[in-house]
Each structure stands twice: as C-alpha cells, then as structure tokens.
Nucleic acid binder design. Structure first.
Length: 224
DNA sequence: CTACCGATTGACT
DNA sequence: GTCAATCGGTAGA
C-alpha cells in the first residue's frame, strides 16, 4: 500500500544506464515503475519521488505516438539515442518522456505520475499547492513540481546531473503489483494496453472512483 | 501572418 | 459527470 518509509532517505545518485532505456518502450514503461525520478536545482536543492505511472509510445507502429507522422522540430529528440528526455507541450503545459530503443526509432515512455518523497516543500512551492497527493499526479503536474520545462528536451538522463532516474534504494527486491490499462487522453489507438501503474497507489492519475473500478475489474481472477 | 489542435488541468453541475 | 482556459507547435495562406 502507501509506502512512506522512503521519506527522509537521500535520493540515489547512480543513474539508470543507456542499455536500460534502449529496449521496447512497453518493457521500459513497466520497469520504470518504482524507480526514482530526481531533479537537482541550480542551488543544489533536490526534489524527487517514486514513479507510479507510465505509458509507452511505439514509434511508427503506434498511431498515438507523436512521431508516427515523421520527424519535426518538436519530436526530433525521440529520433535520437535512448535515455534522453523528450519534453513536449500540451495545452500550455510540459510533459516528460524518456526516449527508448535505438537511434532513428522514435519511441518513448511518458512519465505520468510520481509519489513525492524528497524536497516536498520545494515541490509545493513550485505547484502553489500543499496537497501531497496531487503534487505530481498527472504528467504536467509532475513537470511543474520538478520544474521540468522545454529546457530539458534532449537532456541526457544517464549523466546523473540535474535530471535523472535511478533504482529505488528502499525496494530491496520487493515485487510491485502492476496494472496495465488503456492510455489516458489519446484519441487514436485507444484500445492498446500501454499504460502501466502501481496497484493501489493514491499517487496515480485519474479519478479515484474510475481507478478503483478498473482496479478491481483487472484484479479479479478465477479461483485456482 | 492567421487558424487551428492537443499524450492536460481545474473548476464547475 | 461536463466544460473551457491555456499556449507551443504546426500547417497553410
């Protein structure tokens, strides 16, 4: 359930490798759950949290992917090497992706929600909001909480400075319960199950009632 | 230059 | 549940 044991722990410094990202985006999205997303501001202040929700966008074989109709200045980063940040604007807000697969294959994982763990005061300040649950619940809220803007489009997430992703130092081999569902807000390829989130996490985006219904439906299993 | 559109959010009934 | 504000990116005149 809600794991607050990580609060007060230092953010991990060792970034995930290029090889981690250079795989199928559905696998990367699935495996990014539980990882820490870390932001270090110019003055050294750290803000970070645990990724609880991510979506895969599969290059030319996915109609919902921004790169499905070819390269443009906006999506150029997705055509570059894996492990770089792809930051784009939607409805006047920023969203953060991690580029996956190889050069010339424009796929990525959208990081949709995070459980705030470190630097919560700073994230509250950036969001103009106190409520911990809503600080990074949604891709644009997450970017606002971490002050991720167009400035970080193309940023190398494997360099381990300013913005990176690392293994959870508190996980200790624990297995996460993960649910797979349709992606949020996409207008094409709506049926594809390319959204992944941690079961029961209150930091996952979407309406609570919808989440609970979907949750129980997907968890129902025939007795064995 | 103008005219849309959207991987969103927050306010509202 | 509904709805519209918001503005960067993009296409087209």
């Amino acid at each position: 359930m809600i794991d607050v044991s990580a609060q007060g722990i230092d953010a991990p410094r060792t970034p995930l490798s290029r090889e981690f990202y250079a795989r199928d985006p559905a696998i990367v999205a699935r495996e990014l759950l539980g990882k820490w997303l870390i932001r270090q501001a110019a003055d050294g202040a750290i803000s970070a949290g645990r990724i609880v929700e991510a979506e895969a966008y599969l290059s030319s074989r996915d109609r919902a992917c921004h790169a499905t109709r070819g390269k443009s200045p906006k999506n150029a980063t997705m055509f570059g090497p894996a492990g770089h940040a792809y930051v784009y604007a939607i409805h006047a807000r920023w969203c953060l992706n991690a580029v996956t697969e190889g050069i010339g294959v424009p796929s990525a994982v959208l990081i949709r929600a995070m459980e705030p763990l470190v630097g919560i005061d700073l994230m509250q300040l950036r969001r103009g909001l106190e409520k911990n649950l809503d600080l990074a619940r949604g891709p644009a809220r997450l970017c606002a909480a971490l002050d991720v803007t167009k400035h970080y489009d193309g940023w190398d997430l494997t360099a381990g400075r300013e913005l990176w992703i690392a293994d959870d130092p508190t996980l200790n081999g624990k297995q996460l319960k993960i649910i797979r569902s349709r992606r949020v807000g996409v207008t094409s390829a709506h049926h594809r199950l390319l959204r992944f989130f941690i079961a029961g996490s209150p930091y996952v985006s979407g309406r609570r009632s919808v989440l609970t219904a979907r949750h129980s439906a997907l968890f129902r299993r025939p007795a064995t």
